[in-house]
Design a protein around this nucleic acid. Structure first.
Ligand SMILES: [Mn+2]
Ligand SMILES: [Mn+2]
Ligand SMILES: [Mn+2]
Ligand SMILES: [Mn+2]
Lengths: 220, 220
DNA sequence: AAAAAAATTTAGACTAACCTAAAAAATATT
DNA sequence: AATATTTTTTAGGTTAGTCTAAATTTTTTT
């Protein structure tokens, strides 16, 4: 039996909330993430459990089964590939693509995904720096640092964002920070942890802690 | 209020069955086309009428309102643009794209359609020769001939198909007939109206009436 | 014009995905 | 350990889109 749009979204969200160590996800957390009520979540959990997609014992929280994990990763793969398409081929900004990809990710057809993947040149990362699972369902999170963990003088590469909100991405655009930028922290203010950052060796920018906390970087 | 996947499909089908002269469409015809029962159609018609998308009087059949026509054409535009994308960019065969386009056509976002249109170079026709409505909703059916209306010795251009079934399209592939082929009828058999056709001035092919009836052509 | 047949609508149900309110279980606080 | 609070589940409804069976209207045939 095919999984519905709604079921796929639940699985994707359970995957995200469960993290890499597959910790139990609570009913309330799912209600929050799906913008529904806890009672509705309980209904859906019973259904997903019946379909063998999640491990569910009443009051215990849920985790994905192997089968559920497979579905979740396939949806994530489609989401991220479509985001690449929208940015690379259609010229959308990285702040504009998430909602459209939320729709496209539910279009069935493996053939479509695989051809899209090839058309895009088998990209490894989406426009936000998130890794794209391969066709076999392997998804390896690169372990990036958060900019707050970087000391003064270190040069790092901007590799991704934690916050995907359009407002944050637009803020980065205005600051001239993009994926691949070289960032060097030149100063950290003790009081509020705000920082000065040199971008690609040229202009220096003032960055709040709020921004630093959402920037994923890599030592070179 | 947004139109659902199902509502959009009803409108598209009413548009198709209503033809260019906007003739009334019957409940049974819709039940047939939507693969549902007449009773279900009646329910939906009441809903579409309430939304002002169709003209509906009980037992009288339905036609699209201006508003309904606009929605139908927008869905057709998306369907055909996505078919072009699937064939031109992803390398699908013209026999493989319809079902995927049935899904993609319901993805919302005008921005997406318009950027896709530009990316494809504003194509005028889809892979089956069907005209693509423009962004303003203008859809003009070119008035093609059916091959059965062409006499012996006339050279015509293959411009489209009436039957969109994969099996028919695959049959044309095997026969070497594609959009743009030059066809010349060299012989018609009185008995069964089967014909011999020269393709692009070279090989001659035997064609059944069933095939001739589904080929749209143009005098040159 | 009456009867028969066909088309359409109405009545009453079902499932998926949601809801609110109430009950029950788990967790935290005294 | 008892009580209070929070979390989760159950109970009972709603809407969209579907169904079957029965009633009604229209069309066709006699
Ligand atoms: Mn996204
Ligand atoms: Mn992304
Ligand atoms: Mn099609
Ligand atoms: Mn087509």
């Amino acid at each position: 039996m095919q999984n519905s749009f709604t079921e796929e979204n639940y699985l994707k969200i359970i995957h995200a909330l469960s993290g890499r160590d597959g910790v139990e996800v609570s009913t309330n957390a799912l209600a929050e993430s799906t913008s529904t009520r806890a009672a509705s979540v309980t209904d859906m959990l019973r259904k997903l459990a019946d379909k063998g997609l999640i491990h569910y014992k009443k009051y215990q929280g849920v985790t994905l089964t192997e089968a559920g994990e497979k579905v979740a990763i396939s949806v994530i793969r489609k989401h991220r590939l479509w985001e690449v398409f929208l940015v690379e081929k259609l010229g959308f900004g990285w702040d504009e693509v998430h909602d459209i990809a939320e729709e496209l990710e539910h279009v069935p057809s493996n053939e479509l995904v695989e051809r899209l993947d090839a058309f895009l040149g088998h990209p490894r990362f989406d426009p936000h720096g998130d890794p794209i699972p391969d066709a076999k369902g392997n998804l390896t999170d690169p372990d990036y640092l958060i900019l707050t963990d970087v000391g003064i003088g270190e040069k790092v590469l901007m590799m991704g964002v934690l916050d995907h909100a359009p407002s944050f991405l637009q803020h980065l655009d205005r600051s001239g920070i993009t994926l691949g930028s070289v960032l060097e922290i030149t100063e950290i203010n003790e009081y509020d942890k705000s920082a000065s950052v040199r971008i690609n060796g040229s202009q220096t920018l003032f960055i709040s802690l709020e921004v630093s906390k959402n920037l994923l970087v890599q030592r070179r």
